[in-house]
Each structure stands twice: as C-alpha cells, then as structure tokens.
Nucleic acid binder design. Structure first.
Length: 842
RNA sequence: GCGGGCGUGGCGGAAUUGGUAGACGCCGGGGACUUAAAAUCCCCUGAUCCACGGAUCGUGCGGGUUCGAGUCCCGCCGCCCGCACCA
C-alpha cells in the first residue's frame, strides 16, 4: 500500500508555518498550574532584545525545547515560558545614536525576535510572555523592592562608586573589569554618591552552604561562586608602630606569625597616604602603583614593588620591630588593607622579600627535623610549626587557634571571618530601568512610595540628545508630593540594575496574578526550575543574584523555595572559522556567505581571490564569522537547523558551524520522510531483531535526552534509521517507524507532525505519548565475546548469552586464530569476563 | 601567577566508567541509476606492511600499576576557560 503524501519531498517552507499555526490554535504548550500531572519547569535564560536572534540563542532554546517536548510526551505538565530582559543600556545607546525612543526600539526588537523564535517552532507558552520593561512587570518589582526594604535588606549609603563617564552611570564593583566599565569599556572614575544597596552579605553563609546541595550544577560554576563569596577565617590584630600609632592587619595564617619579616600596606591605605603627605618619594611611589596594567594576569606577573616607610611594627610575641612597606600587591578593599608578610609561606611575600633582601624564615615543616631545610620557594602546604617559640611542634590548625587565643587574651585583636562578597549596589543613573519607588522629602526624609501608588512609571517624553540621566533633567517627572506630609518633594531618579529584573522573572513566569507579583502557592507548584539552561558567562552575577533574591523573598515569607534552579546546564558556544584579508595595517573580515570554501582553501566569491582562514572561534559580529538563523531556516527549514544544533558536539562544548553539516541535516530530514512513507498498513509478521533494536533505541534515546546528551541521542536515531532501511515490511517495521517518528518529534517537530498526519493519526504528534519500552526486549540473547591472547584481540565469538565460564574458555581455546597465536606455548592463566571477553595468558 | 577543564582518524566526536578503540555524522574515494545532471542507493575510508589469510603500530609525550589502560597513578608538553595579588 503506498501513500501518495510521501511521493513529494517534505517541504519545510509549507509545513513549518502550518504546524506552528496548528500548535497555536490548539494552545498545546500553555501550562496549567492546576494540572495534577507531575510538573516540569524547563527554562532557558531569557534574551536581551538586542535586535535579532543569533545562533547561540537557537542552540540554547533548541536544547530546552527538546527537553520540554520530551517531558510533555512523557506525561508531564510542562512550563516552558519565554520573555524579554528588556531594560538596559543598548536601548539608551540606540536612543542616543539613532534618535529612537528606547521603548519603541525595544518593542520593535521584541517583535522581530519573537517572529524569529516562532519560525523555529519552539514549544513555548507565549501566554506567559513577559517584557521586564512593561510597567506591569516592573511595578511588581517595585513592590518586591519595598518588601525587601521593610525587611531591612535595603539601605542607602554614601560611598565611593565607579562612575562610567561614557555611559554616565554607576557600576557595581563586580561589574568593573580591569578598571573599565564592563559594558562600555571606559576608564572608571571614583565618585561619591548616595546609593541604594541590597544586603546580599546577610545571606553570604547561606549562599555558600546552598552550593553544597546543588549537585546538578556544573562543578565549575559552584566553584566560581564559592570563590566569589570568598569566605576566609583568620585573625585581625593591631601592631604597635614605632611612631606611636597602631596598624590593623588581617591574616588567614596566624600560625605563621613567627615567620613574619615585614608588614605591608596598600598604596591607598591611610598610613601610606599619611607618609606620602610628608615624603614626596612615598607620594611618587603611590602614583607609580596606580599606573601600569590592571588585569589580574598583568598584576600577578608584574614585579613586586615596595617602599620602605621607615616605620617599625612591633611583633606581638618577639617584640622585634618589622619594617613597614607600602606595597603594590596589597589590596585596600580586602581585610584591613594591611598584611603581615610571611615570605616562607606565601609566594608573593617570598618574591617581595627576595627582591628587598628581607629575611625568609621557615616556620612550617613536614617534621621537626626539617626545621632547617632551605626554602627555594614559598611552601603553602600543611605541616607542623618550627622556629616558632611556643608554637613549635603544633599542627597548623592548632597553632592558628593558639595564636588567636593569645592575641585575644592580650586584647590586641580577634579571630575573624572575612568575606569577599560585598553588598549589591543596585542604583543606576539611567532612564531605561525600573524606577526606585522612593520619594525624598526635606521634612520626612526618604519615604517609600505607598503600594497603592505603584507602579511608578517612566515618563515617555525624554531627551537623549545630551548625556546624563534623562529622569534627572525631565521638567516635571521628579516632582511629587511627599506621601507622609503631602508637601512638595522629589522622586528618586535612580533606576534599578537590570540584574534585579532577571532575579525574579522565573517566579513571574510561574504565576502572574494582576494584583501582586506572584501567588505563593502557585509558585510552589512549579519551583524550583527543574532544568535551567544558559551561557557560562552568567555563572556568577546573574545566578548568584537570583539565588540571593529568592532567599530574600523567602526571608520575607513570600516564597517557600530558597534555591530557584535545581539543575543548571551551561551550553557551549557556536563557532566558525574567521575569513579575512590583510589590508595594510587593518584586517578586513568576510562572512561565510561571501566566501567559497573548499578543501584547498577559501576564496572570496566577489573576486575569486584567496582569503586567509583564521581560527575557529565564537561567532561574533566584529569578526563577521556569523550566520543568520533566519537565512538558514529559509534555506533548510527549522527542523534541519534544530537537528544541527543537537548533532555531533556534546552540548556543553563548542559547536563548529558548517555548511556541509547543515546540508547533511537537510538530507536526513528527507531521508526520514521517505522512511515514514514506507509505513505499510498491510504488512504483518514480526522481526524480533528489529523489535529489539527499536526498544533499545527508545531506551537509550530517553536516557540521552534526560542527560541532555543530545549528540548521543542523534547518533542512536541515525543508527536505527539505517537499520530500518535494510529491513522488509512487517508489523515490527511499522512499529519501528512509528517509534522513530515519535522520538524525533521533540527534535524535528514539523516533520513529525507532517508524518503523523500523513500516516492518518488524529491529533498532534506533539501531544502523543512517548513510545513505551518493553524491558524484555532490551536484553540480547546472543553476545559477542572478545578473545584475547596476552591482552591482544585475536578473535571474536558470537555465543548464547549466559554461557558458563568453562564453556567460554573451551570455545576460546578452540579458536583456530587463537591457537595460531598461542603457537604451542603453555597456557598459564585464562581470564574470563562473562558476556565480555576471554583473555589467555601464556 | 592562581583556580578549573581538555588533548582520540582529514574534521566534529563515540567507547557500557579497567574489558573488541574509532559508534554516528561530515569530508574524501569508487560504483549503480540517468542522454546528462541533480536527487537517491551500494561499497571503501586510522597508519604501515602484506603472501590478501592477515601482521605490526596507534587515544599529546615519557614512565608505572594490571591478565588487560583512551579510562587509574607519577612526571612532562600543549591548548582552552575563569580570575579578585583575597594575605
């Protein structure tokens, strides 16, 4: 029986939009919070609406989509939402550069990108779409901010902040990279401003402890967060100085105190400033410290430099005076900005001491008789104390406790835990963000905007032709009456960091009442997110802030969960070769579309001349090694593009884009279509071997998808397809075709729907059940045994499964090839691994 | 400099976690069909040697453990990512 639907090639141009419309009409991807099915919340990091989607988005959202569709077919109620991280600087930059309004620019981008996402056939619940620039969203955010304020987690303080002279905005310390704005790249200046802060440090210990439970997060992300939080325990104590003052230092190694040979302070430490005021050499040295490279790598490989202040610091136990240096490797904003330096057991101190001829004393050794062993480099490892007076013979841990005890008894210091993590500065002097809902009244001070006056919306008539904050300059917006006394007052003109927007969007996706940010019970239905997928670049800031914000809301009693993301997956980048030509001092780049690539090299289509082939790196506009998703969808269809995103490379690794690869995917789409066409309703009879292959494949593909090992699932599906093409019509074959159609449905949903319909099924393949596995069919009744002689493969045997060891051994020894290899030597030992191999040792 | 990760054919990568290395895809080669092309299908495709039966070598390099190592241990080399000189 032939089915004429399959006589023509599968046409994505027709099928893609038809099925996208069908899914919309059936509203089949809208999540029901009241369903009694098991719930699965699959979430990919929502995009910033920059203009058009890029290939990285396609990879990210395809992975999530396969998981979401798979979960649905497995009978879960799936929440798979999408929205827009819509506040941020690029909109203001566009406003400044092109004279467009940030809102209009953002909404145009959202329209374009939404249309592009729809072309890919993602199973998204668009009814829950969020744009963070929507007053409905940021109004709720203002309400949450006020809740945190009431709970004492919000405060203002005057502090030196990072002022970005290009963006005219303040950056959090964490957002300054190498002394430059992490987005603008402009050199950051220090300015004092009144800022709003969130008390993330209140949760430092809890954020650290929580990492221990995040077993389904990549180890490296947990490690990065741990290091970022940076807990250390040590001793803070004061040295008496020769000039009569005191100097507080912090050390994590009080056990090495007898090895201290000098004291060092940061260039911007008050002591250094004091010395500089009367000593111009010191002032010059401080200036020198502020020059030079600012990246971590540069700083760490830079030569250690110091300036001897001439001041002495009295050692608390030996009463010896140690020289006090100003040093370029001491940081002001960690600990007290001053250290006791122990060259024997800290490499930086060692380098410094070597340069300035200061004593290097061993105070930790593997054993007491190693006390005099010379030090060629600093030894940071464990051991026992030597050359350390009353500490001699103690372990590092005991010595730490002993020193802290004695210093505390002498009341010159105390044991102290120091965190690297600092409170989160959320103030931004920008227009395109969430207005901070406060009013400044001369009489009443800083007053929160009452809830019934929320949202505080942004004014629409703003001027971007001059730099600075348009809210500050707006003729009327900032004038408001004090909610307490009713007198004329001023609105807060700072807006919130956009990381606040992305710190709770996953809650709003789960529950969207009109009158409050979310419903506690409904959030509890969905959270935590079962699988969160996004880029590694958010390993620290976004993920830590989201973890903090969720804890803060739990602290306020608004949610029950503390950890928002149960599993995290960080996907790799999409890469491509770079094509370029040298033009004098400049490198001219060409897009892959402008270049003809062959095995010999690459030529520019326009002039037929060679271009240089560069490294395979992340697709970026500046290097022009990009492909536009919309172009490739038009050429190959959404399913081929999706299939490519899942094939070959493991999802956490980089995926090299290739024209040949996408062509292969396009061919496979047609190959499957032809295979569907071979479904023969009249065929009967069973093919046991094929049944087994089918069920093994379903089993393996299920496990692969659950582990996000899409590349392995793809390989299995290729394998089953090839096996099927070699078989004759039978009931087994029909079942296999049906199974393969359903298995590719999450990956190539349009093809699957078209095939499902053509084969006469009612309803949508997207709503169909995932094929069942019969465990009995997973077991083979025959196995192939490797026969080795002295560990080298000589022969293979195909035998019945479960054959006893003795019989296996006899069969192996009977093998002609094995006998030839043994060549009459004495068999000393035979190792038999049932079901696997026989190894004969002579 | 510190922390983390990775090195497997021409390429992307598999390998049941100590048990037949190279699954699957791409590229390439040969053939079938066709007037021809596209499309499709079949075969070959790690290296070297070969009497065409096979043999030897082979998972960055050098050692080691083991009946057996891509996998475990020690020491190198190279590449990638992150970074905050955190005392």
């Amino acid at each position: 029986m032939s089915n004429s639907r399959f006589d023509v090639r599968f046409d994505p141009g027709q099928a893609d939009s038809r099925w996208q419309a069908a899914w919309d009409d059936a509203r089949c991807f809208e999540a029901d919070s009241h369903s009694d099915k098991p719930k699965s919340y699959v979430l990919e990091m929502f995009p910033y609406p920059s203009g058009r989607i890029h290939i990285g988005h396609v990879r990210n959202y395809t992975m999530g989509d396969v998981l979401a569709r798979y979960k649905k077919m497995r009978g879960h109620e799936v929440l798979h939402p999408m929205g827009w991280d819509a506040f941020g600087m690029p909109a203001e930059n566009a406003a400044m550069e092109k004279g467009v309004h940030p809102a209009g620019w953002t909404h145009d981008n959202i329209d374009t990108m939404k249309r592009q996402l729809k072309q890919l056939g993602f199973a998204l619940d668009w009814s829950r779409e969020i744009a963070t620039c929507d007053p409905e969203y940021y109004g709720h955010e203002q309400a949450l901010f006020l809740e945190l304020y009431k709970a004492g987690l919000v405060y203002r303080r005057t502090s030196a902040v990072n002022w970005d002279p290009v963006d005219m905005t303040v950056l959090a310390n964490e957002q300054v990279v190498d002394g430059r704005g992490w987005r603008s790249g402009a050199l950051v200046e220090k300015r004092k401003l009144n800022q709003w802060f969130l008390k993330i440090t209140h949760f430092a210990q809890d954020l650290l402890d929580g990492l221990g439970n995040l077993q389904n997060w990549p180890e490296k992300v947990r490690l990065m967060q741990e290091n970022w939080i940076g807990k250390s325990t040590g001793l803070q104590f004061a040295f008496d100085l020769s000039n009569g003052e005191k100097l507080e230092v912090y050390t994590t190694r009080p056990d090495t105190i007898f090895g201290a040979s000098f004291v060092a302070v940061a260039a911007d430490h008050p002591l250094a400033q004091g010395v500089a005021s009367t000593n111009c050499d010191a002032a010059k040295f401080i200036d020198l410290c502020k020059q030079g490279g600012t990246t971590a790598a540069e700083l760490e490989t830079a030569e250690k430099l110091g300036f001897d202040t001439g001041i002495g610091a009295k050692h608390p136990f030996t009463a010896e005076y140690l020289p006090v240096y100003i040093a370029n490797f001491v940081l002001m904003d960690y600990g007290t900005g001053a250290i006791m330096a122990v060259p024997g057991h800290d490499q930086r101190d060692f380098d410094f001491a070597t340069k300035y001829g200061l004593p290097i004393v061993r105070v930790i050794a593997a054993s007491a008789d190693q006390a005099a062993a010379p030090l060629t480099e600093a030894e940071a490892g464990d051991g026992i104390c030597v050359n350390s007076g009353f500490l001699d013979g103690m372990s590092v841990a005991d010595a730490k406790a002993e020193v802290i005890k004695r210093i505390e008894a002498a009341e010159s210091g105390e044991g102290k835990t120091v965190w690297r993590l600092r409170d989160w500065g959320v103030s931004r002097q920008r227009y395109w963000g969430t207005p901070i809902p406060f009013i400044h009244c001369d009489a009443c001070g800083v007053v929160p905007v009452p809830n019934d006056q929320l949202p505080v919306t942004l004014p629409e008539d703003v001027d971007f032709s001059i730099p600075g904050n348009p809210l500050e300059r707006h003729p009327s917006w900032k004038h408001a009456d004090c909610p307490t006394c009713g007198k004329p007052a001023r609105r807060e003109t700072d807006t919130l960091d956009t990381f606040v927007n992305s710190s709770w969007y996953f809650l709003r996706f789960a529950s969207q009442p009109a009158d409050k940010p979310f419903d506690k019970a409904e959030v509890a239905q969905w959270l935590p997110v079962e699988q969160y997928i996004g880029g590694i670049e958010h390993a620290i800031l976004h993920l830590l802030y989201a973890r903090f914000w969720t804890r803060a809301l739990a602290y306020c009693g608004l949610v029950e969960v503390k950890e928002p993301f149960a599993s995290l997956f960080t996907q790799g980048m999409v890469t491509h070769e770079v094509y370029s030509r040298r033009d004098g001092p400049r490198e001219i780049y060409f897009t892959p579309g402008e270049v003809e690539r062959s095995s010999e090299g690459a030529v520019l289509k326009a002039d037929g001349q060679k271009v240089d082939i560069g490294k395979v790196i992340k697709m970026s506009k500046s290097k022009k090694n990009v492909v536009d998703p919309e172009d490739i969808i038009a050429d190959y269809g959404a399913d081929a593009v999706r299939w490519f995103m899942l094939s070959d490379s493991p999802p956490e690794r980089d995926l090299p884009w290739s024209e040949a690869g996408i062509e292969g995917c396009g061919r496979f789409v047609q190959r499957l279509w032809r295979l569907f066409g071979q479904f023969d309703g009249d065929a009967s009879g069973e093919d046991k071997a094929l049944d087994r292959k089918t069920h093994q494949t379903v089993h393996a593909v299920s496990a692969d998808i659950e582990a996000l090992s899409f590349n392995k699932a793809v390989a299995r599906l290729y394998e089953l397809t090839s096996a099927l093409e070699k078989t004759q019509p039978s009931a087994s074959r029909n079942e296999a075709i049906r199974a393969i159609l359903l298995m590719v449905s999450p990956m190539m949903p349009h093809l699957a729907e078209e095939g499902w319909e053509a084969l006469g099924h009612d309803g949508l393949a997207a709503m169909a059940a995932w094929p069942e596995v019969d465990p009995a069919l997973l077991v083979e009744d025959e196995v192939t045994i490797a026969v080795q002689h002295k560990g080298k493969l000589r022969d293979t045997l195909t035998v019945a499964k479960g054959l006893p060891k003795e019989e296996l051994e006899a069969l192996a020894l009977a093998s002609e090839k094995v006998q030839r290899s043994i060549d009459g030597a004495e068999v000393r030992k035979v190792i038999v691994v049932p079901g696997r191999l026989v190894n004969i040792v002579t």
